[in-house]
């Protein structure tokens, strides 16, 4: 197997130490930091995302893999900067008011960071006005909203309405996610995109940037 394939495999198994060794080897062999990131780390995470969707692996495995991904992307950071790779874009992320779930949100955050986004995390139980203020202050390219409960998913629409009312809707792409959310629901409340899992969320955010 190539170093990139091994790196992808190590991320899927959550073997942080192997990830760091492989990155060193890869850089020594002249592979670019960008390729190690895209075709090694993120590839592995995205493959694991598919297995997660198919119920082949569960939350702990994904968290263990995210931990390895995080360490890997940290190790690549200096080289990416040295190579002149700029942040892909800026994202603001948070779980809506009344909802305390953060594991899914944190995974998406890590995936975005891994993919080269500059991410501002507003945390959980975030009031609508705080999202509005963050758009004004941070001027992100993408806003990602999370809701894990059927009782809080309605809040996603409320946030989008508040952003519209503040006249900021055209400035930012909005993505929504969480267990009860569907593509239809996302369209209905006026979001730009919906992704069913953390790995595809990073891909979607990237494609929304290109579209913008």
């Amino acid at each position: 197997m190539s170093i990139l394939e091994n790196l992808s495999e190590a991320v899927q198994k959550g073997r942080a130490k192997d990830v760091l060794t492989l990155i060193e080897e890869g850089l020594a062999e002249g592979l670019s930091a960008q390729r190690l990131l895209d075709e090694g780390l993120l590839k592995g995470m995205s493959l694991l995302g598919v297995r997660f969707k198919n119920n082949e692996v569960f939350v702990p495995e994904v968290l263990i893999a995210a931990r390895a991904l995080n360490k890997g992307s940290e190790a690549l950071k200096a080289q990416l900067i040295a190579d002149g790779v700029e942040a892909k874009g800026k994202a603001v992320i948070g779980t809506v008011k009344g909802d305390l779930h953060d594991i899914g949100k944190n995974l998406v955050k890590m995936m975005l960071e891994g993919a080269g986004f500059d991410v501002v995390d507003l945390g959980v139980d975030v009031p609508d006005e705080k999202f509005v203020a963050a758009i004004q202050e941070q001027t992100p390219d993408v806003l990602l909203l999370s809701a894990l409960l059927t009782t809080t998913m309605g809040q996603l629409g409320a946030v989008i309405d508040a952003i519209k009312a503040a006249g900021l809707r055209e400035q930012v792409k909005i993505m929504v996610g969480g267990a009860p959310i569907t593509h239809g629901f996302a369209t209905e409340i006026g979001a730009d995109g919906y992704s069913p899992d953390a790995a595809s969320a990073a891909e979607l955010a990237t494609s929304l940037l290109v579209a913008a």
Binding site: G14, R67, N70
Partner: peptide
């Protein structure tokens, strides 16, 4: 639930 250190340590302690 809202503590950034907890979130980081939770994932770190998964191993």
């Amino acid at each position: 639930a809202t503590h950034p250190v907890f979130t980081d340590r939770y994932i770190e302690n998964m191993a």
